[in-house]
Design a protein around this nucleic acid. Structure first.
Lengths: 303, 303
DNA sequence: ACACACTGTTTATTACATAAACAGTCCTAG
DNA sequence: CTAGGACTGTTTATGTAATAAACAGTGTGT
């Protein structure tokens, strides 16, 4: 990794892509960007984004606050790397099985899961499409799923915007409830009940007749998956649209000109690197399998 | 306004509903909650939420920072009131004209407009359904529009969640671009172009074939309304659903089994499995990094 | 071998929320 | 009609941030 980093590339993005220049002289580094990010993510997972201060991260690693700035140019930089770490990559299964709809649903579920595992990601402001490897991987997975539909590239992107938006929205609301639970130290039922009570006290039938009727019907005590409902309706609509396009209503831009890595596919080092990626994918797949198994068993044990 | 405020009602919410007790003795008040909120909103509109400090608000009104605490119990309180102010109420036309679909579209448009007028609202974390008069008014307008559909109250709420979620998501992304424009002092075209260039440099066809193809097709230079597309698909799906319900068909409500590992997060074996997954993810990320590096070098060597 | 790029540390500055104590104002109970 | 005290806006103080600047030690390429 001796590249001269692009001078106009934001430092955080360069780090995320692993194309930041590493220093050659001077004393050995004791820390690493990875360890710093890991510590920061641990803190955020445990105590929220607000608890992530440079001092707290440094303390967790046993250093002084200022030392972190040798690795990360500013807190914003650290946040981008934390986001990238928490975003993760889509599971390999998504790319393998099923039709476009199932695959998009799987992406939604996995993204939502990531948001609930790391709810603080939702607090980081979005500035344009994130130009990092992991977020690109999610987009890639979605576009691959939509390949069979024959939609235009524009439409595919718009559909992916629905999926990621749904996950983001669901994550935002659900994480809000989970935060309330944690803050007040009570369970979900207590929260919904006190919320319902508050509404009953404030929402009068004369000022808000329809909302009041909904409250009376107990909608705020209901725990059905309203977000899943929303996604299903949206995908129904997408299916309609695809059918219409395929019936010849709108112009489907033919989308698939072959990939151009053919020119380096015979390069030895590249082939090795590619094989390593496949192996790593397999290892991840296996680890996820074990995780699911452990989750099942833990639930079993709980009962 | 001499009500004894509910003791268990959060002060901010009491203020929002105008049922907070006003003091009876002592010197005349020079300020008012309204003026404070107005000043705070002005600052946030002009310079972002980050610029709203107690000191800044006080300065704008010509007072010292601490004086605000006589009117607002804490900054969180002020934020809730700012949010309520910025949320506003739906325009009168929405309740008067059109079928459910047009009315929901109008709500979406107005909500999005509010978000773009006051983008800082999107930075305020959501905790449960906001129990304030103005947000209740938006919900009321939506439920009223859905009255004619004959859907269950649960379904109506779920549909409203789609509409508000769409506005929120669109606002989040668009506001992100507007912020970039303001920060860098350039126009929209410059932003999308530099973003497109960044993508072209980072997204390779071998690692992200579909995404690369989309970039080649110019999707990131395209300025069509992808969010409007998303809402229309979703409402298409809602229309299908309404038709199915009215035809008496059993509505398909898919129930995914729990996403929440929260209940077993303290299980030792599960935690270990989860850590293994994270390690595997990291290994994959590293392998991908090496692969990209190898691809770059292979191309270099080829020349 | 030595200059100097680099390390982690120390110290200082600035900005913020808010607690506590204060002096002046004016309502209301006696 | 007056005194007590509730209430006003202010001053001062405390604790927590991010990060700039200067520092003394370390190891590498020339």
């Amino acid at each position: 990794m001796t590249d001269t980093a692009d001078p106009d590339l934001p430092r955080g993005i360069a780090l995320a892509w692993g194309i930041a220049a590493d220093p050659q002289r001077g004393p050995k580094r004791e820390m690493s960007v990875e360890r710093i990010v890991e510590a920061a993510v641990d803190i955020a997972d445990a105590e929220g984004l607000g608890a992530v201060s440079m001092a707290a991260v440094a303390a967790r690693l046993g250093y002084t606050p200022m030392s972190l700035y040798r690795y990360v140019s500013a807190k914003d930089d650290l946040m981008l790397l934390m986001q990238e770490e928490a975003t993760g990559v889509p599971s390999a299964e998504i790319g393998a099985t099923g039709r476009w709809r199932e695959r998009l649903e799987a992406i939604y579920r996995e993204q939502l899961q990531q948001y609930l595992r790391h709810p603080w990601v939702l607090e980081i402001p979005i500035s344009g499409v994130p130009a990092t490897p992991n977020s690109a991987a999610w987009m890639e997975a979605g576009l691959a799923a939509l390949d069979e539909t024959g939609l235009s590239h524009q439409d595919r992107l718009a559909v992916m915007l629905i999926v990621t938006g749904s996950a983001h929205w669901a994550g935002t609301i659900i994480a809000g409830y989970l935060r309330l639970q944690r803050e007040r130290g009570v369970d979900e039922i207590a929260i919904t009940q006190s919320e319902d009570a508050l509404f009953r006290a404030l929402i009068t039938a004369d000022a808000y007749p329809h909302l009041r009727a909904a409250i009376e019907a107990g909608v705020f005590l209901d725990d059905s998956d309203a977000f899943g409902f929303g996604l299903e309706r949206a995908l129904d609509g997408v299916a309609d649209y695809i059918a219409a396009v395929q019936a010849g209503a709108a112009p489907p831009t033919p989308a698939w000109q072959g990939l151009d890595d053919a020119d380096i596919a015979d390069d030895k080092r590249f082939r090795e690197a590619r094989k390593a990626v496949r192996d790593a994918e397999k290892a991840l797949r296996d680890a996820r399998k074990v995780e699911r198994q452990a989750a099942r068993e833990a639930r079993e044990r709980r009962r």
